[in-house]
Amino acid sequence: AEDTGVRVELAEEDDGKKPSIALKLWVEDHKKLKGKYKESGAIEFTFDLEKEIPENVAQEMVESGFFHESDAKTVGKSIRDRVALIKWRRERTVSAAL
């Protein structure tokens, strides 16, 4: 995944089955953000792997005041990259089991 300056990680163990997973997002390099970033720490949230869209969560974070609108794309991409990795690992685990 591209280093966007925004880090997204699992906030809980992934059992590979539950549709929703807790993720944690924080800024590692605020120089990579366009908007003025007020240090807010790590933001934990739940993401539905089957139904939800990363960019929508990023927009909710902007609307909640965590990020500037100009950084919605960067935040959305960071979430998308992590979600893709989680899904890839799940598929690999299933195919290995088969």
């Binding site: 880090r7 944690k24 924080w26 720490g41 934990e44 949230f45 909710e60 974070m61 609307e63």
Partner: peptide, 27 residues
């Protein structure tokens, strides 16, 4: 440690806590 909580109008809960310790040392 300080933990804050923001609930978006769409209902999603965002829980804010300090950046994980290990990551701070990496920076």
């Amino acid at each position: 440690c300080a933990t804050a909580q923001v609930v978006h109008s769409a209902g999603r809960r965002f829980i804010v806590s300090p950046v994980p310790e290990a990551r701070l040392k990496e920076q």
